[in-house]
Amino acid sequence: MKDLVQDGDSLVGASTLEDGVDRRVFLKAALGTGFAAAVLPVEAQTLVKTDVTGLSAGDHLIVINGQEVPVYRAQPEGKTNPPVILVISEIFGVHEHIKDVARRFAKQGYMAVAPDLFVRAGDASKVPNIADLMRDIVGKTPDAQVMLDLDTVVNWARQRGGDTDKLGITGFCWGGRITWLYAAHNPKVKAGVAWYGRLVGEPTANSPKHPIDIAQNLKTPVLGLYGAKDTGIPLESVERMRAALDKGNSGSTFHVYANSGHAFHADYRPSFNEADAKDGWRRALDWFRTHGVV
């Protein structure tokens, strides 16, 4: 099956795996199975598992400038023109937790789309440790390419019936940083929710700007959900970002959880804080609904 996705002034093919393809082979080849090697073993006793009852969900390939980009999509079965939520992964890629988050949004009436934005650098699920993952996968994924990929994914979602006039974005850790940046990049984004994404940093060739650099001119309301005990994202950087946002008029805000550290929403990791994760999820849904992503 073949769709066409508008990419700037050109058309790129969007191949979807729906007929005559062994999905198990595709999953192993394109997105990996289960969870990323770098986060094993998984805290199985706390895993949230969202079924596909009432949903249309599956894996797709979008071809962007000759590169096949895997995408996981979930949406309510039979619902026309659902609002669209982009779900941006952590550094570990689109593993089972990110897919489950997409299904959770689908249960709320959204078309949720989670693209593998690291695919050009390699398979994030197979890298055994975080240091190699940061150097060989994340460090070789330019922000500019991520913005282009997300633009194309949005167009693909629109062509598949999603209402991209009601577009939201959410992301976790690395994806939280991308949430801030893409909200500034694409004026069609109505609202964003950034979960513990890095806010400040030194510029590099692949990451020339960080969220604090776009804060003052940001127009899209973004809710930042952060942990006070996050040793990698100190509260000082949250306060710097808050002060920069206050100079603009995006309506963005933060909620900081006093008893949580990093990755408190990740129910497969020891950092999971169930109470704060549930509260953050409620706040995220309220944020999207309040800002027209409904």
Rank of each mutant, 00 (worst) to 15 (best):
L167N: 09
K190Q: 08
V293D: 03
A38M: 03
R23A: 09
K107H: 15
G232M: 08
Y182Q: 09
T50Y: 00
H97T: 04
A266T: 11
A144P: 05
L167F: 07
G122K: 04
L27I: 12
A29L: 06
G171Y: 03
T179C: 14
H255F: 09
D132L: 13
Q159G: 15
V193G: 12
W281K: 11
I62G: 05
E43Q: 10
E202F: 03
H60D: 15
N217I: 09
D116Q: 08
V293F: 03
F172L: 02
D230A: 01
V153Q: 05
I212Q: 00
L61C: 11
T33P: 03
I64Q: 13
S56I: 00
W180L: 15
Y110S: 01
L40D: 03
G54C: 02
I88N: 14
I169V: 15
Q216Y: 07
G292M: 11
G171N: 01
D286M: 07
P41W: 02
P41A: 05
Q75L: 06
W195L: 08
K99I: 01
W281E: 08
V189E: 09
P41L: 01
Q108V: 06
T290F: 06
L17T: 14
V154Q: 08
N155I: 01
D116R: 06
T290K: 13
K28W: 00
G13K: 12
L218N: 09
I130T: 06
I85F: 04
F172T: 01
I233K: 10
P41H: 04
E239P: 14
A124P: 14
V256P: 08
D51L: 07
P187H: 09
